[in-house]
C-alpha cells in the first residue's frame, strides 16, 4: 500500500470532513495531514468530536462529507474489500481497552493474527507472548481473563492487541484516562517505544497535556468540530491561541467557558 505513495504524500490526509448527529454538527470541515512516521496528538474538550474523527478514519462511523486519504487513496471511495484491506493496516487502542471479556488475555492479543493472518493457535500463542513481553507483561498473564487485570494491565494488553499485527497506522483513544500519573507515564513510554520500533504513524487523542507532550511530534486542537490550531508540542503551552491557552492551562474563564454559558 505504501509503495503507491511518494515521499510528499502524507500517510493520512483528511479534507473537509463533516459529520452531524441529528442537529448537532460534530465535525465541521476537518482538514488534517499526518506525515508518515510521525505522531499527531489531537486535543480538545469532551464532546469536541475527537473520537468521532478517529472512528470515521477506521470506518466505524460513515462521515457525511469529505475525503480521508490513506497513502493518497481515498478510503471513502473504496469498495468494501478495499476498505477492509486498508483497515487491516491500522491498529486501535480504545479508551476503556475494549478487551473481549469472553477470551483469555493471549487470545485477545492474538485475535487479529488468528482472524486476519490465519496463523495456527500454537503460533498465535507464541506471538502473543512475544507481544506481551514488548509491553512488559509476562507470558503467564496470557492465561488470565481481562476481568482479573488491573486498569494499567488492561491498557497494556489493549496496546499489545493493537500492535500485534505491526500496523502502519496506530490510533490511541485517551490512552492514559483512568490511570494514575505513574502508570500514565509508563503507557505513554510504551506507546512512544512501539511506534518508534514499528516505524508506524500514530494519532492519539487525549485531554492529558503531559501525555500529549510525551507522545506528540505535532499537536492539533479540535474545537467545535474544527482544527483551530496545530503546532509543535513545545509551543503548546504558549500557543498564542486563546482557545488552546484556556484548554491547556485549564482556565475557567475564556472563549470555551463563554460558549458554554450561552
Amino acid at each position: 500500500m505504501s509503495g503507491a505513495a511518494d515521499t510528499t504524500t502524507p500517510k493520512l490526509r483528511i479534507r473537509g470532513l463533516r459529520k452531524a448527529f441529528g442537529a448537532k454538527q460534530v465535525l465541521d470541515g476537518i482538514d488534517l495531514d499526518v506525515p508518515a512516521g510521525t505522531s499527531l496528538v489531537v486535543i480538545g474538550g469532551s464532546g469536541s468530536g475527537k473520537s468521532v474523527l478517529i472512528k470515521c478514519v477506521l470506518g466505524l462511523i460513515e462521515p457525511d462529507e469529505g475525503t480521508i486519504e490513506l497513502d493518497g487513496k481515498n478510503l471513502l471511495a473504496m469498495d468494501r474489500e478495499g476498505r477492509e484491506r486498508a483497515v487491516a493496516t491500522m491498529g486501535m487502542l480504545f479508551q476503556n481497552g475494549a478487551l473481549f471479556d469472553s477470551l483469555p488475555v493471549w487470545e485477545n492479543v492474538a485475535f487479529g493474527l488468528l482472524a486476519r493472518h490465519r496463523v495456527g493457535r500454537r503460533e498465535a500463542r507464541e506471538r502473543a507472548d512475544a507481544v506481551l513481553a514488548q509491553v512488559g507483561l509476562a507470558p503467564s498473564v496470557g492465561d488470565l481473563w481481562p476481568s482479573e487485570l488491573s486498569g494499567g494491565m488492561q491498557k497494556r494488553v489493549a496496546l499489545a492487541r493493537a500492535i500485534a499485527a505491526a500496523p502502519d497506522l496506530l490510533f490511541f483513544d485517551e490512552p492514559t484516562t483512568g490511570l494514575d500519573p505513574i502508570m500514565g507515564a509508563v503507557i505513554d513510554g510504551l506507546i512512544v517505544d512501539v511506534v518508534k520500533r514499528l516505524g508506524s504513524t500514530a494519532i492519539a487523542i487525549t485531554h492529558d497535556m503531559a501525555s500529549a507532550r510525551r507522545i506528540a511530534d505535532s499537536v492539533a486542537m479540535l474545537h467545535k468540530g474544527r482544527i483551530v490550531w496545530q503546532g509543535a508540542p513545545e509551543t503548546l503551552m504558549a500557543s498564542g491561541n486563546p482557545i488552546v491557552d484556556q484548554f491547556t492551562h485549564g482556565r475557567r474563564e475564556g472563549p470555551i467557558t463563554m460558549e458554554l454559558r450561552r
Partner: peptide
C-alpha cells in the same frame, strides 16, 4: 457499549 464490537471491526473481523 464497551466498544468491543467496534474493536472486532478494527481487527478485521
Amino acid at each position: 457499549v464497551t466498544d468491543q464490537i467496534d474493536a472486532l471491526t478494527t481487527l478485521s473481523t
